[in-house]
Amino acid sequence: MSHATDESTQIQDPDQPTDSDQVREIGHDEFDPVGALALIGLYFLILVFLWFFMYFVEFLGNDPTVVSGIVSVVTGGVGLA
């Protein structure tokens, strides 16, 4: 607890010069994670696309598949009609 709030923003590692690059302090109310939203939105789209690709192309295209005898008759009937 004590470590968490007091010291975390003091970056004093001499070995990590890049870390001292903090140019401003952004508080809770000023921070709007648009970048995170953009990235996560992109991830969402990729997931949806890949899911459909995997299910309808890779999986259903990988015939034959295990079906129940009854339904196969039903779909066969639909096919004839």
């Binding site: 295990v66 129940s68 009854i70």
Partner: peptide, 13 residues
């Protein structure tokens, strides 16, 4: 999607 596969396409486990 999975339910569609089971019910509409008749894929059985």
């Amino acid at each position: 999607t999975i339910t569609y596969g089971s019910v509409a396409l008749g894929i059985t486990m």
